[in-house]
Amino acid sequence: MTHTQTFPAGSGITPADFDAIMREKVPFVGDMGVITERLTDDSATLRLPFNERYLRPGNVVTGPAIFALADIALYAVAWLVVPKADLAVTTEATVHFLSGAKPGDLIAEAKILKAGRRLLIAECHIRSAVDDSLCAHVIGTYAMPPA
């Protein structure tokens, strides 16, 4: 059984717009070099280019880098809901690390599960671009600013 939900009209933001916003408003994210590959009405796909600084013992990508990518992808879908989500903030996140991410780019696919007036709930899958393995599953809640 498939479930279809209609989400409010968003900002019409493009991947290039979101990348520029991150570089300007959240310099830490800009420094990571995350690339927004795709935005739809209710989902976002982002890429974290590999950097050896993200490796930990065991030759896998560190958890903080994986979670940072997931949080950025969840923030991207917040921008799809309200025209200017500058003030949207993470209020909760549950991270399930499922497998070690091999050295290489990581791909985040975030999707809105529920968009309310005050809260947005979304999920994010992090996959390795090396072997397409699912590395992490994240459910996040964002407090949303007034539209």
Rank of each mutant, 00 (worst) to 15 (best):
L48R: 00
A44W: 01
T40H: 02
R56G: 06
G12E: 08
A70G: 02
S43C: 08
V81A: 01
N59Q: 12
I21N: 00
S43V: 03
F50N: 04
P15H: 06
W79T: 00
L46C: 09
D86K: 07
L39H: 03
V60N: 13
G10C: 10
T14K: 08
F67T: 14
G63A: 15
I66P: 00
Y75T: 07
E52W: 01
D42L: 05
L74M: 08
D31K: 10
L87S: 11
I72F: 14
V77P: 00
A20W: 03
R38T: 09
Y54L: 11
V60S: 14
A65R: 02
K25W: 07
V82M: 01
F18T: 01
A9W: 04
Y75D: 05
R56W: 06
W79H: 02
R53L: 09
R53A: 14
V61H: 05
T36Q: 07
K84P: 01
L69K: 00
V81Q: 00
E92P: 03
L48M: 14
F18M: 13
G58I: 11
D71F: 04
A16N: 06
A44K: 01
A44F: 01
P64L: 10
I66A: 07
F18G: 02
G12S: 14
A65Q: 06
T90I: 11
T90M: 10
D86P: 04
A93D: 03
P64V: 09
G10T: 04
D86H: 11
A93G: 14
E92W: 09
T4A: 12
A85N: 01
F67L: 15
G12Q: 11
G63C: 10
I35H: 10
V34L: 15
R47D: 05
P57R: 10
V60C: 07
A65S: 15
N59T: 11
N51P: 04
W79Q: 00
V26R: 13
A85S: 11
P49A: 08
R47G: 07
F18S: 03
E52R: 14
P27G: 07
T62Y: 10
P8D: 12
E92N: 15
K84M: 12
V77S: 00
L48W: 07
T14P: 08
T91R: 13
L46Y: 08
A93V: 12
D42H: 10
D17N: 12
